[in-house]
């Protein structure tokens, strides 16, 4: 299980190859890469991501631990960047490996849902003249509900 929080760019393909190498009991590998996109109105020049050093690593580790208790994972990887990111650059990736694909897909979605709303990162869209914090969306918070039946 590997968690990395870094400012440097990473190569998602190379990371996935390294993650997949040497997995003998995993019949399924799932990965997701988040990429900086231009805002809907266009004209964004970069994204800046602030985080809470210390809490970030702890929060992600707790999320990965929770995923491991729910699914039988052979391996899991989370990489999340902070600092200034150009449009088109990778922001983060998760990869999961399991014996079967359902567990790998579900665990990857679980990791994504929790990273979005429970890991202390804040995105800011930088335009040529202005900058604006990205607001959390109700849908992202609601997405957590499906992992905890009986709770809101």
């Amino acid at each position: 299980m590997s968690v990395r929080v870094q400012s440097q760019r990473f190569d998602a393909g190379a990371e996935l190859n390294a993650f997949s190498a040497g997995l003998e009991n995993a019949g399924a590998v799932v990965s997701f890469t988040g990429v900086v996109r231009d805002r809907d109105a266009g004209g964004m020049v970069a994204m800046e991501i602030e985080h809470y050093p210390g809490m970030t690593e702890r929060a992600i580790a707790a999320i990965v631990d929770e995923a491991r208790t729910r699914w039988d994972l052979a391996a899991a990887l989370v990489i999340h960047r902070h600092g200034r990111l150009e449009i088109g650059a990778p922001i983060m990736m998760v990869a999961t490996a399991s014996r079967h694909r359902v567990a790998a897909f579900e665990a990857a979605e679980f990791l994504m849902d929790y990273l979005k709303s429970r890991a202390p990162f804040w995105k800011k869209e930088i335009g040529p003249q202005d900058a604006a914090w990205v607001e959390a969306r109700d849908e992202d918070e609601a997405a957590l509900g499906r992992w905890s039946p009986g709770q809101d």
Binding site: G34, Y52, G54, M55, R58, A59, H80, I91, M92, M112, L115, K116, S117, R118, A119, P120, F121, W122, K123, W133, V134, E135, A136, D140, E141
Partner: peptide, 28 residues
């Protein structure tokens, strides 16, 4: 967050070293 664990505004500060305030997180 108190000592790097999310909590709520009613939480006790007994023993707390670090309290962080921030908007809802937007990771991923």
């Amino acid at each position: 967050a108190i000592d790097q664990e999310l909590t709520d505004f009613g939480a006790s500060l007994a023993g707390a070293r670090e309290v962080a305030f921030f908007p809802p997180m937007t990771g991923g």
